[in-house]
Nucleic acid binder design. Structure first.
Lengths: 208, 208
DNA sequence: GCGAAAAGTTACCAGCAGTAAGTAACGGGG
DNA sequence: CCCCGTTACTTACTGCTGGTAACTTTTCGC
Protein backbone atom coordinates (compact mmCIF):
# COMPACT_ATOMS: atom_id res chain seq x y z
CA UNK A 1 0.00 0.00 0.00
CA UNK A 2 2.71 2.45 0.92
CA UNK A 3 3.99 3.91 -2.26
CA UNK A 4 7.61 4.78 -1.88
CA UNK A 5 7.10 8.23 -3.21
CA UNK A 6 10.63 8.74 -4.40
CA UNK A 7 10.22 12.29 -5.41
CA UNK A 8 12.53 15.21 -5.41
CA UNK A 9 11.84 17.21 -2.29
CA UNK A 10 11.89 20.40 -4.28
CA UNK A 11 8.40 19.68 -5.47
CA UNK A 12 5.68 20.82 -3.14
CA UNK A 13 3.66 17.73 -2.38
CA UNK A 14 1.45 19.45 0.15
CA UNK A 15 -1.94 20.87 -0.53
CA UNK A 16 -2.25 24.59 -0.72
CA UNK A 17 -1.57 27.30 -3.17
CA UNK A 18 2.14 27.54 -3.97
CA UNK A 19 4.12 30.78 -3.90
CA UNK A 20 3.59 32.98 -6.87
CA UNK A 21 0.44 31.16 -7.80
CA UNK A 22 2.32 29.15 -10.38
CA UNK A 23 1.78 25.52 -11.15
CA UNK A 24 4.62 23.45 -9.79
CA UNK A 25 3.90 20.50 -11.99
CA UNK A 26 2.72 21.38 -15.44
CA UNK A 27 1.49 19.30 -18.32
CA UNK A 28 4.91 18.80 -19.85
CA UNK A 29 6.24 17.62 -16.52
CA UNK A 30 3.56 14.94 -16.30
CA UNK A 31 4.16 13.84 -19.88
CA UNK A 32 7.89 13.60 -19.21
CA UNK A 33 7.14 11.44 -16.20
CA UNK A 34 4.83 9.27 -18.24
CA UNK A 35 7.52 8.71 -20.81
CA UNK A 36 10.05 7.78 -18.13
CA UNK A 37 7.77 5.33 -16.41
CA UNK A 38 6.70 3.72 -19.68
CA UNK A 39 10.29 3.39 -20.78
CA UNK A 40 11.21 1.85 -17.44
CA UNK A 41 8.18 -0.31 -16.64
CA UNK A 42 6.77 -1.06 -20.05
CA UNK A 43 3.66 -0.28 -22.01
CA UNK A 44 1.42 -1.65 -19.27
CA UNK A 45 2.14 1.23 -16.92
CA UNK A 46 -0.78 2.62 -14.97
CA UNK A 47 -1.83 6.20 -14.45
CA UNK A 48 -1.08 5.76 -10.79
CA UNK A 49 2.52 4.94 -11.61
CA UNK A 50 2.71 7.98 -13.83
CA UNK A 51 1.38 10.15 -11.03
CA UNK A 52 3.92 8.77 -8.55
CA UNK A 53 6.74 9.27 -11.01
CA UNK A 54 5.60 12.84 -11.54
CA UNK A 55 5.56 13.37 -7.79
CA UNK A 56 1.86 14.12 -7.65
CA UNK A 57 -1.38 12.29 -7.22
CA UNK A 58 -3.80 10.93 -9.74
CA UNK A 59 -6.27 13.82 -9.87
CA UNK A 60 -3.41 16.09 -10.91
CA UNK A 61 -2.75 13.88 -13.87
CA UNK A 62 -6.41 14.12 -14.79
CA UNK A 63 -6.29 17.87 -14.42
CA UNK A 64 -3.17 18.31 -16.53
CA UNK A 65 -3.62 15.83 -19.33
CA UNK A 66 -7.03 14.22 -18.91
CA UNK A 67 -7.82 10.52 -18.83
CA UNK A 68 -5.94 7.59 -20.17
CA UNK A 69 -7.04 8.12 -23.74
CA UNK A 70 -5.86 11.73 -23.61
CA UNK A 71 -2.54 10.67 -22.21
CA UNK A 72 -2.05 8.18 -25.01
CA UNK A 73 -3.04 10.87 -27.44
CA UNK A 74 -0.58 13.40 -26.04
CA UNK A 75 2.21 10.84 -26.09
CA UNK A 76 1.26 9.91 -29.63
CA UNK A 77 1.66 13.53 -30.55
CA UNK A 78 5.12 13.61 -29.03
CA UNK A 79 6.18 10.42 -30.74
CA UNK A 80 4.78 11.63 -34.04
CA UNK A 81 6.68 14.89 -33.67
CA UNK A 82 9.92 13.02 -33.15
CA UNK A 83 9.13 10.77 -36.06
CA UNK A 84 8.48 13.73 -38.31
CA UNK A 85 11.64 15.41 -37.09
CA UNK A 86 13.75 12.32 -37.67
CA UNK A 87 12.37 11.78 -41.15
CA UNK A 88 12.16 15.38 -42.23
CA UNK A 89 15.41 15.62 -44.08
CA UNK A 90 14.57 12.52 -46.09
CA UNK A 91 11.34 14.08 -47.31
CA UNK A 92 12.73 17.54 -47.87
CA UNK A 93 12.46 19.11 -51.24
CA UNK A 94 9.94 18.85 -54.02
CA UNK A 95 11.39 15.72 -55.53
CA UNK A 96 11.36 12.29 -54.05
CA UNK A 97 13.94 9.66 -54.78
CA UNK A 98 14.22 6.02 -53.88
CA UNK A 99 17.24 6.66 -51.70
CA UNK A 100 15.32 9.41 -49.95
CA UNK A 101 12.45 7.03 -49.40
CA UNK A 102 14.79 4.42 -47.99
CA UNK A 103 16.26 6.96 -45.59
CA UNK A 104 12.74 7.96 -44.58
CA UNK A 105 11.79 4.38 -43.76
CA UNK A 106 15.02 3.64 -41.94
CA UNK A 107 14.65 6.75 -39.82
CA UNK A 108 11.14 5.65 -39.03
CA UNK A 109 12.30 2.23 -37.90
CA UNK A 110 15.08 3.66 -35.78
CA UNK A 111 12.74 6.06 -34.06
CA UNK A 112 10.42 3.21 -33.16
CA UNK A 113 13.33 1.18 -31.85
CA UNK A 114 14.45 4.15 -29.76
CA UNK A 115 11.01 4.40 -28.21
CA UNK A 116 9.98 0.78 -28.17
CA UNK A 117 7.69 0.80 -25.13
CA UNK A 118 6.27 4.19 -25.92
CA UNK A 119 5.44 2.98 -29.39
CA UNK A 120 3.65 -0.05 -27.94
CA UNK A 121 1.83 2.09 -25.41
CA UNK A 122 0.60 4.46 -28.06
CA UNK A 123 -0.33 1.93 -30.72
CA UNK A 124 -1.84 -0.49 -28.23
CA UNK A 125 -4.85 1.64 -27.46
CA UNK A 126 -6.92 -0.12 -24.87
CA UNK A 127 -10.36 -0.38 -26.40
CA UNK A 128 -13.30 1.23 -28.11
CA UNK A 129 -12.59 4.65 -29.52
CA UNK A 130 -9.05 4.49 -28.22
CA UNK A 131 -8.43 1.92 -30.90
CA UNK A 132 -9.71 4.35 -33.44
CA UNK A 133 -7.56 6.86 -31.58
CA UNK A 134 -4.60 4.94 -32.85
CA UNK A 135 -5.37 6.99 -35.88
CA UNK A 136 -4.16 9.99 -33.96
CA UNK A 137 -0.57 8.84 -34.19
CA UNK A 138 -1.18 7.91 -37.78
CA UNK A 139 -2.89 11.16 -38.58
CA UNK A 140 -0.10 13.24 -37.21
CA UNK A 141 2.68 11.39 -38.96
CA UNK A 142 0.45 11.24 -41.99
CA UNK A 143 -0.17 14.96 -42.36
CA UNK A 144 3.28 16.01 -43.58
CA UNK A 145 3.51 12.89 -45.68
CA UNK A 146 0.19 13.67 -47.32
CA UNK A 147 1.45 17.14 -48.13
CA UNK A 148 4.71 15.88 -49.54
CA UNK A 149 2.95 13.31 -51.68
CA UNK A 150 0.37 15.74 -52.99
CA UNK A 151 3.00 18.32 -53.95
CA UNK A 152 5.20 15.73 -55.52
CA UNK A 153 2.41 14.06 -57.45
CA UNK A 154 1.36 17.43 -58.81
CA UNK A 155 4.94 18.07 -59.80
CA UNK A 156 5.10 14.92 -61.89
CA UNK A 157 1.70 15.54 -63.43
CA UNK A 158 -0.13 12.83 -61.55
CA UNK A 159 -3.40 12.94 -59.68
CA UNK A 160 -2.72 14.22 -56.15
CA UNK A 161 -6.14 13.02 -54.96
CA UNK A 162 -4.72 9.73 -53.82
CA UNK A 163 -2.31 11.37 -51.40
CA UNK A 164 -4.32 10.88 -48.23
CA UNK A 165 -5.16 7.23 -48.76
CA UNK A 166 -1.57 6.57 -49.75
CA UNK A 167 -0.22 8.36 -46.72
CA UNK A 168 -2.37 6.31 -44.37
CA UNK A 169 -1.39 3.18 -46.18
CA UNK A 170 2.30 3.96 -45.98
CA UNK A 171 2.10 4.88 -42.31
CA UNK A 172 0.20 1.67 -41.56
CA UNK A 173 2.74 -0.32 -43.49
CA UNK A 174 5.54 1.25 -41.51
CA UNK A 175 3.78 0.71 -38.18
CA UNK A 176 3.22 -2.96 -38.86
CA UNK A 177 6.68 -3.50 -40.26
CA UNK A 178 8.10 -1.76 -37.19
CA UNK A 179 6.11 -3.95 -34.87
CA UNK A 180 7.22 -7.03 -36.72
CA UNK A 181 10.79 -5.87 -36.97
CA UNK A 182 11.34 -5.10 -33.28
CA UNK A 183 10.46 -8.69 -32.44
CA UNK A 184 12.87 -10.10 -35.00
CA UNK A 185 16.47 -10.84 -34.24
CA UNK A 186 19.36 -10.21 -36.55
CA UNK A 187 17.56 -8.14 -39.14
CA UNK A 188 19.06 -4.73 -39.62
CA UNK A 189 16.98 -1.60 -40.03
CA UNK A 190 18.80 -0.80 -43.24
CA UNK A 191 17.96 -4.16 -44.68
CA UNK A 192 14.25 -3.94 -43.93
CA UNK A 193 14.15 -0.31 -45.04
CA UNK A 194 15.66 -1.32 -48.36
CA UNK A 195 13.09 -4.04 -48.90
CA UNK A 196 10.11 -1.88 -48.07
CA UNK A 197 11.49 1.00 -50.10
CA UNK A 198 11.87 -1.34 -53.02
CA UNK A 199 8.20 -2.29 -52.75
CA UNK A 200 6.91 1.22 -52.34
CA UNK A 201 9.02 2.65 -55.10
CA UNK A 202 8.85 0.00 -57.76
CA UNK A 203 5.59 -1.71 -56.93
CA UNK A 204 4.90 -5.38 -56.58
CA UNK A 205 5.98 -6.43 -60.07
CA UNK A 206 9.16 -4.38 -59.86
CA UNK A 207 10.70 -2.38 -62.68
CA UNK A 208 11.59 -4.39 -65.71
CA UNK B 1 -21.50 -25.12 -39.27
CA UNK B 2 -23.82 -23.00 -37.31
CA UNK B 3 -24.36 -24.05 -33.78
CA UNK B 4 -27.93 -22.91 -33.55
CA UNK B 5 -27.84 -23.95 -29.94
CA UNK B 6 -28.98 -20.60 -28.70
CA UNK B 7 -28.63 -19.96 -25.04
CA UNK B 8 -31.82 -21.46 -23.80
CA UNK B 9 -33.17 -23.06 -20.72
CA UNK B 10 -32.08 -26.41 -22.06
CA UNK B 11 -28.51 -25.71 -21.06
CA UNK B 12 -27.69 -26.92 -17.61
CA UNK B 13 -26.71 -23.85 -15.72
CA UNK B 14 -26.50 -25.70 -12.45
CA UNK B 15 -23.39 -27.27 -11.01
CA UNK B 16 -23.04 -30.97 -11.36
CA UNK B 17 -21.95 -33.40 -13.97
CA UNK B 18 -24.24 -33.30 -17.01
CA UNK B 19 -25.80 -36.41 -18.52
CA UNK B 20 -23.41 -38.47 -20.52
CA UNK B 21 -20.46 -36.65 -19.07
CA UNK B 22 -20.23 -34.41 -22.10
CA UNK B 23 -19.43 -30.77 -22.10
CA UNK B 24 -22.53 -28.71 -22.65
CA UNK B 25 -20.69 -25.58 -23.71
CA UNK B 26 -17.55 -26.11 -25.74
CA UNK B 27 -14.88 -23.74 -26.95
CA UNK B 28 -16.61 -22.92 -30.22
CA UNK B 29 -19.77 -22.11 -28.38
CA UNK B 30 -17.96 -19.58 -26.20
CA UNK B 31 -16.24 -18.03 -29.19
CA UNK B 32 -19.57 -17.72 -31.00
CA UNK B 33 -20.98 -15.99 -27.94
CA UNK B 34 -18.00 -13.67 -27.81
CA UNK B 35 -18.53 -12.68 -31.42
CA UNK B 36 -22.21 -12.00 -30.83
CA UNK B 37 -21.62 -9.88 -27.77
CA UNK B 38 -18.83 -7.90 -29.42
CA UNK B 39 -20.96 -7.29 -32.49
CA UNK B 40 -23.82 -6.14 -30.30
CA UNK B 41 -22.08 -4.21 -27.50
CA UNK B 42 -18.90 -3.11 -29.18
CA UNK B 43 -15.21 -3.76 -28.86
CA UNK B 44 -15.19 -2.83 -25.19
CA UNK B 45 -17.09 -5.93 -24.16
CA UNK B 46 -15.98 -7.68 -21.00
CA UNK B 47 -15.33 -11.33 -20.36
CA UNK B 48 -18.23 -11.32 -17.95
CA UNK B 49 -20.56 -10.26 -20.75
CA UNK B 50 -19.17 -12.98 -22.96
CA UNK B 51 -19.80 -15.53 -20.22
CA UNK B 52 -23.38 -14.35 -19.75
CA UNK B 53 -24.02 -14.46 -23.47
CA UNK B 54 -22.65 -17.99 -23.57
CA UNK B 55 -24.96 -18.93 -20.74
CA UNK B 56 -22.15 -19.84 -18.39
CA UNK B 57 -19.95 -18.18 -15.81
CA UNK B 58 -16.54 -16.65 -16.10
CA UNK B 59 -14.40 -19.59 -14.97
CA UNK B 60 -15.89 -21.61 -17.83
CA UNK B 61 -14.61 -19.04 -20.26
CA UNK B 62 -11.19 -19.32 -18.70
CA UNK B 63 -11.34 -23.09 -18.93
CA UNK B 64 -12.44 -23.15 -22.56
CA UNK B 65 -10.44 -20.37 -24.15
CA UNK B 66 -8.12 -18.93 -21.51
CA UNK B 67 -7.74 -15.29 -20.51
CA UNK B 68 -8.50 -12.16 -22.39
CA UNK B 69 -5.38 -12.31 -24.52
CA UNK B 70 -6.20 -15.86 -25.57
CA UNK B 71 -9.74 -14.83 -26.44
CA UNK B 72 -8.48 -12.01 -28.61
CA UNK B 73 -6.06 -14.41 -30.20
CA UNK B 74 -8.73 -16.99 -30.96
CA UNK B 75 -11.00 -14.35 -32.43
CA UNK B 76 -8.11 -12.99 -34.46
CA UNK B 77 -7.67 -16.44 -35.87
CA UNK B 78 -11.32 -16.61 -36.85
CA UNK B 79 -11.23 -13.18 -38.44
CA UNK B 80 -8.05 -13.99 -40.29
CA UNK B 81 -9.60 -17.20 -41.59
CA UNK B 82 -12.56 -15.30 -42.96
CA UNK B 83 -10.24 -12.72 -44.45
CA UNK B 84 -8.21 -15.40 -46.17
CA UNK B 85 -11.38 -17.08 -47.38
CA UNK B 86 -12.80 -13.86 -48.76
CA UNK B 87 -9.59 -12.93 -50.54
CA UNK B 88 -8.66 -16.40 -51.70
CA UNK B 89 -10.02 -16.21 -55.19
CA UNK B 90 -8.23 -12.95 -55.83
CA UNK B 91 -4.88 -14.46 -54.97
CA UNK B 92 -5.47 -17.78 -56.69
CA UNK B 93 -3.07 -18.93 -59.33
CA UNK B 94 0.60 -18.39 -59.87
CA UNK B 95 0.24 -15.06 -61.56
CA UNK B 96 -0.81 -11.83 -59.98
CA UNK B 97 -2.50 -9.03 -61.82
CA UNK B 98 -3.42 -5.52 -60.84
CA UNK B 99 -7.11 -6.31 -61.10
CA UNK B 100 -6.58 -9.35 -58.91
CA UNK B 101 -4.77 -7.18 -56.41
CA UNK B 102 -7.58 -4.68 -56.44
CA UNK B 103 -10.12 -7.42 -55.79
CA UNK B 104 -7.94 -8.69 -52.96
CA UNK B 105 -7.85 -5.29 -51.30
CA UNK B 106 -11.53 -4.65 -51.78
CA UNK B 107 -12.45 -8.02 -50.30
CA UNK B 108 -10.22 -7.18 -47.38
CA UNK B 109 -11.99 -3.88 -46.80
CA UNK B 110 -15.41 -5.44 -47.05
CA UNK B 111 -14.53 -8.14 -44.56
CA UNK B 112 -13.39 -5.53 -42.08
CA UNK B 113 -16.60 -3.57 -42.62
CA UNK B 114 -18.61 -6.73 -42.08
CA UNK B 115 -16.85 -7.32 -38.77
CA UNK B 116 -16.25 -3.78 -37.65
CA UNK B 117 -16.35 -4.26 -33.89
CA UNK B 118 -14.60 -7.59 -34.03
CA UNK B 119 -11.84 -5.98 -36.04
CA UNK B 120 -11.51 -3.23 -33.46
CA UNK B 121 -11.55 -5.74 -30.62
CA UNK B 122 -8.81 -7.80 -32.18
CA UNK B 123 -6.56 -5.01 -33.35
CA UNK B 124 -7.03 -2.95 -30.21
CA UNK B 125 -5.05 -5.28 -28.02
CA UNK B 126 -5.11 -3.92 -24.49
CA UNK B 127 -1.47 -3.64 -23.53
CA UNK B 128 1.91 -5.19 -23.18
CA UNK B 129 2.40 -8.36 -25.16
CA UNK B 130 -1.19 -8.22 -26.32
CA UNK B 131 -0.11 -5.33 -28.46
CA UNK B 132 2.56 -7.49 -29.94
CA UNK B 133 -0.19 -10.10 -30.17
CA UNK B 134 -1.79 -7.90 -32.76
CA UNK B 135 0.83 -9.58 -34.86
CA UNK B 136 -1.18 -12.74 -34.49
CA UNK B 137 -3.90 -11.43 -36.76
CA UNK B 138 -1.26 -10.07 -39.06
CA UNK B 139 0.74 -13.26 -39.01
CA UNK B 140 -2.21 -15.40 -39.94
CA UNK B 141 -3.36 -13.25 -42.79
CA UNK B 142 0.26 -12.80 -43.73
CA UNK B 143 1.14 -16.45 -44.11
CA UNK B 144 -0.76 -17.20 -47.32
CA UNK B 145 0.21 -13.84 -48.71
CA UNK B 146 3.86 -14.54 -48.04
CA UNK B 147 3.54 -17.82 -49.86
CA UNK B 148 1.80 -16.26 -52.82
CA UNK B 149 4.37 -13.52 -53.07
CA UNK B 150 7.32 -15.88 -52.80
CA UNK B 151 5.97 -18.19 -55.47
CA UNK B 152 5.10 -15.33 -57.75
CA UNK B 153 8.41 -13.54 -57.30
CA UNK B 154 10.22 -16.75 -58.13
CA UNK B 155 8.06 -17.10 -61.23
CA UNK B 156 9.07 -13.72 -62.54
CA UNK B 157 12.74 -14.24 -61.69
CA UNK B 158 12.85 -11.89 -58.75
CA UNK B 159 14.28 -12.38 -55.30
CA UNK B 160 11.61 -14.06 -53.14
CA UNK B 161 13.50 -13.17 -49.95
CA UNK B 162 11.54 -10.00 -49.54
CA UNK B 163 8.22 -11.84 -49.37
CA UNK B 164 7.82 -11.86 -45.59
CA UNK B 165 8.62 -8.20 -45.03
CA UNK B 166 6.40 -7.28 -47.94
CA UNK B 167 3.54 -9.37 -46.64
CA UNK B 168 3.69 -7.72 -43.23
CA UNK B 169 3.92 -4.36 -44.86
CA UNK B 170 0.92 -4.99 -47.07
CA UNK B 171 -1.15 -6.38 -44.22
CA UNK B 172 -0.25 -3.38 -42.08
CA UNK B 173 -1.14 -1.04 -44.89
CA UNK B 174 -4.51 -2.72 -45.28
CA UNK B 175 -5.19 -2.67 -41.55
CA UNK B 176 -4.51 1.02 -41.28
CA UNK B 177 -6.39 1.88 -44.42
CA UNK B 178 -9.31 -0.17 -43.15
CA UNK B 179 -9.28 1.63 -39.86
CA UNK B 180 -9.15 4.96 -41.59
CA UNK B 181 -11.75 4.00 -44.13
CA UNK B 182 -14.42 2.78 -41.71
CA UNK B 183 -14.42 6.20 -40.07
CA UNK B 184 -14.79 8.02 -43.37
CA UNK B 185 -18.14 8.80 -44.92
CA UNK B 186 -18.93 8.59 -48.57
CA UNK B 187 -15.81 6.80 -49.72
CA UNK B 188 -16.53 3.53 -51.44
CA UNK B 189 -14.51 0.40 -50.86
CA UNK B 190 -13.91 0.07 -54.57
CA UNK B 191 -12.51 3.58 -54.77
CA UNK B 192 -10.06 3.08 -51.91
CA UNK B 193 -9.13 -0.37 -53.15
CA UNK B 194 -8.30 1.10 -56.52
CA UNK B 195 -6.09 3.78 -55.03
CA UNK B 196 -4.15 1.40 -52.82
CA UNK B 197 -3.87 -1.12 -55.58
CA UNK B 198 -2.44 1.57 -57.79
CA UNK B 199 0.22 2.32 -55.20
CA UNK B 200 1.13 -1.27 -54.51
CA UNK B 201 1.24 -2.26 -58.16
CA UNK B 202 2.90 0.70 -59.79
CA UNK B 203 4.88 2.15 -56.92
CA UNK B 204 5.05 5.71 -55.75
CA UNK B 205 6.32 7.24 -58.99
CA UNK B 206 3.77 5.34 -61.07
CA UNK B 207 4.41 3.74 -64.43
CA UNK B 208 5.52 6.14 -67.13
C1' DG C 1 -7.07 40.07 9.42
C1' DC C 2 -10.48 37.47 6.67
C1' DG C 3 -12.97 35.22 3.32
C1' DA C 4 -12.67 33.47 -1.46
C1' DA C 5 -10.25 31.03 -4.68
C1' DA C 6 -6.54 28.07 -6.00
C1' DA C 7 -3.89 23.83 -5.65
C1' DG C 8 -3.60 19.22 -3.88
C1' DT C 9 -4.56 15.27 -1.23
C1' DT C 10 -7.30 11.55 0.79
C1' DA C 11 -10.55 8.35 0.23
C1' DC C 12 -13.55 6.46 -2.19
C1' DC C 13 -16.50 3.92 -6.28
C1' DA C 14 -17.29 0.94 -10.22
C1' DG C 15 -15.77 -2.37 -13.31
C1' DC C 16 -12.70 -5.82 -14.93
C1' DA C 17 -9.36 -9.79 -15.25
C1' DG C 18 -8.41 -13.66 -12.88
C1' DT C 19 -8.82 -17.38 -9.16
C1' DA C 20 -9.82 -20.17 -4.89
C1' DA C 21 -13.07 -22.74 -2.75
C1' DG C 22 -17.36 -24.82 -2.46
C1' DT C 23 -21.29 -27.72 -4.45
C1' DA C 24 -24.23 -30.70 -7.29
C1' DA C 25 -24.61 -34.60 -10.32
C1' DC C 26 -22.84 -38.76 -12.38
C1' DG C 27 -20.80 -43.40 -12.33
C1' DG C 28 -17.90 -47.18 -11.00
C1' DG C 29 -16.43 -50.44 -7.09
C1' DG C 30 -17.67 -52.76 -2.72
C1' DC D 1 -27.56 -50.53 -3.32
C1' DC D 2 -24.78 -47.15 -1.29
C1' DC D 3 -20.71 -44.63 -1.07
C1' DC D 4 -16.96 -41.92 -2.78
C1' DG D 5 -13.97 -40.05 -6.16
C1' DT D 6 -14.28 -37.49 -10.35
C1' DT D 7 -16.31 -34.15 -13.22
C1' DA D 8 -18.52 -29.89 -14.19
C1' DC D 9 -20.01 -25.89 -12.77
C1' DT D 10 -21.08 -21.84 -9.60
C1' DT D 11 -20.41 -18.57 -5.92
C1' DA D 12 -17.64 -15.45 -3.96
C1' DC D 13 -13.79 -13.46 -3.60
C1' DT D 14 -8.93 -10.67 -4.58
C1' DG D 15 -6.26 -7.14 -6.62
C1' DC D 16 -5.81 -3.58 -9.59
C1' DT D 17 -7.09 0.27 -12.53
C1' DG D 18 -9.48 4.25 -14.36
C1' DG D 19 -12.02 7.87 -12.65
C1' DT D 20 -14.14 11.18 -9.23
C1' DA D 21 -16.21 13.47 -5.04
C1' DA D 22 -15.16 15.77 -1.07
C1' DC D 23 -12.12 17.67 2.08
C1' DT D 24 -7.71 20.32 3.47
C1' DT D 25 -4.20 23.59 3.17
C1' DT D 26 -2.10 27.69 1.43
C1' DT D 27 -2.01 32.22 -0.88
C1' DC D 28 -3.80 36.57 -2.25
C1' DG D 29 -7.07 40.58 -2.76
C1' DC D 30 -9.47 43.80 -0.05
Amino acid sequence: MEQTARVSESISRRPGRPLGGQLVVDREHVLDAAERVIRRDGAGSSLEAVAVEAGVTKPIVYDRVGGRADLADALAERLADRMVLATRTALAGETLSQTGLTRFIEANLRTVADHRELFLYVTGGSTEQTAIGRLSLAERSTTPLTKTLAVWRSGIQQDPGVAEAWAFGIVGMLQMVSQWWITQEGLSAAEVAGQISELLWNGLPGRT
